[in-house]
Design a protein around this nucleic acid. Structure first.
Lengths: 303, 303
DNA sequence: CCGAGCCATAACCTCTGCCTATGCCTCTGC
DNA sequence: GCAGAGGCATAGGCAGAGGTTATGGCTCGG
């Protein structure tokens, strides 16, 4: 199920947003460093591809039609996502002259860092950042070997030799489809019920899964039902849960949108603390300086 | 600030996701209806553009490298956003033979309908849907004139002649930057405080703003401070709030991600009910049938 | 009434990306 | 062992999308 060809070219959408902001095709063209006719043609093609009139073109500027404004709202979502993606990818490039190297664990790397890097880029456009995704032990090792300037870890155990500061919190959340019987319960479920339920899960070895099992063990539950389904992406899990395949346990960061819209329902678990601190870490005793301090403060503010 | 050229081509990312799922470049190529060499070249170009090795290519298939898996996770976000965009845009095309015409108010059209339409498309790929964005009165008029099959309205007042069913709830939410003094208060603020605060707002006439003022008037507050800043997009407002320009009042659907990550903080308002029901509506007495019923049930389940 | 700003059209060109054809490699099954 | 299937890479040829410059027409303000 490939993407329809109408949306594979983000530059047109980006151009449309520029026109919306600047009020003229020519100025938008300049911002994108293409000629005015090229911009005009691109927008015309966009209109033809979508089958919609997006712009009022007049001899003294161009404004969005009502339809165009709605399209622009939607487009902003896509372009923003692409922008975060770009910032994150940029940081994965191994640049020898990077002035900032970051090591981050899964949840932070997947959900939070892209946005932080966008914010960092606003403040320091030319800063080269390197990102290394790793588990907590690796993060610590890299920091202590001076192969990273700043790290982010999730979970309770803090590797030795590091100073830490909590920058965000997530919470493992039990989610079910609105039609699931758990969605209708007044009170939460018990840890034993959760452990006995066949979940939709990621492949074994994921940090989320380990964290869940450790929290349950703390409450004296040591036996877990086998997963009913193992999938490789969070998106696939969400879809499976929504389709009624069973409950799943995911980071609150992964499901916030679905919860707000009601596509999934969160089920509380009595007496089980599923919160996890997401912490910035750095070699003990050292003061963060320069870009590392900036990123830390962005993370703190954003999270 | 145009998008970097590395991410303007979503088809490469989409192709990468297919490879991740199917395990071979050739099969992914088939899914996208291009030749195997074309797919291979496209992926190679993607790797070169990003400066990263994403795939392990072997004579019996291709698998993602760890880096590739991380990239794929990020890419999924972008591609999903594009997919929703595409479904929504598709519905804006005025198709004479559409078998389903929907009229929706702002919040629903902007935040919820794209996802619902994706779900609807899964069930009925060939269904032609037309979407008309309108205010409540317009939605009602269109339904009664038989120019729409199903409508969605927000807010308390239900136009006459319609049957309705609540499918989702949103809540106008006061948000501030984490550094704002309201973020540190134990108890909520009072309606009078909110009314006296200069907000970051959308241009006058927005439904959100009207809803806020009407809720405040109900509580006996009739004077409102002038906005400190008026912006044209929700994204711009969120950025301004995060940068400390002041509080804003936005739909919970617009800020769920930022709240979960802590980038923005919600401030409760004592005794002010800012919930809004989002309702499906249709001509009174009529039974929903066919695709209209399907969309209604999707909306109900998703919201 | 003239000049500035904006958009459209036209003619030309470049270069990206696709396709077909083919070859090599690896694993499987006989 | 060996043959065949499936997978990826390379090569050559081609089409078209999208860019550029040059120019013209429209509208508004001074």
């Amino acid at each position: 199920m490939p993407l329809p060809p109408q949306v594979t070219d983000l530059s047109s959408l980006d151009l449309l947003l520029s026109v919306a902001r600047l009020g003229s095709i020519g100025q938008a063209a300049a911002e994108h460093r293409i000629s005015q006719p090229a911009a005009s043609a691109r927008l015309r093609h966009l209109e033809r591809r979508l089958g919609l009139t997006l712009l009022h073109r007049t001899p003294r500027g161009s404004t969005l039609t009502p339809t165009g404004a709605l399209i622009a709202d939607w487009a902003r979502t896509v372009v923003d996502a692409a922008d975060s993606f770009a910032a994150a990818v940029q940081a994965l490039r191994v640049t020898k002259e990077s002035r900032l190297t970051v090591a981050a664990s899964q949840t932070v790397a997947e959900y939070l860092l892209p946005a932080w890097l966008v914010a960092l880029r606003v403040r320091q456009p030319d800063l080269a950042v390197t990102l290394q995704a790793a588990n907590s032990a690796d993060v610590a090792a890299r920091l202590l070997a001076d192969r990273a300037d700043l790290g982010f870890v999730e979970g309770p155990d803090l590797p030795g030799g590091l100073d830490a500061d909590t920058v965000a919190t997530d919470r493992l959340t039990v989610v079910v489809a609105p039609s699931h019987r758990w969605a209708r319960r007044r009170r939460g479920i018990t840890p034993a019920e959760l452990a006995a339920a066949p979940l939709v899960a990621r492949e074994a070895g994921s940090g989320t899964r380990r964290a869940l099992e450790s929290a349950l063990r703390e409450r004296g539950v040591g036996e877990f039902a086998a997963p009913v389904l193992e999938l490789s992406s969070t998106t696939a899990i969400k879809h499976a849960v929504g389709a009624g395949s069973g409950p799943a346990v995911l980071s609150s960061l992964a499901v916030s949108t679905e919860l707000a819209a009601g596509a999934l329902v969160a089920v509380p678990v009595d007496g089980l603390d599923l919160r996890r601190r997401l912490r910035a870490v750095w070699p003990a005793g050292r003061q963060l300086t320069g870009p590392a301090r900036d990123l830390h403060s962005i993370a703190r503010r954003h999270g």
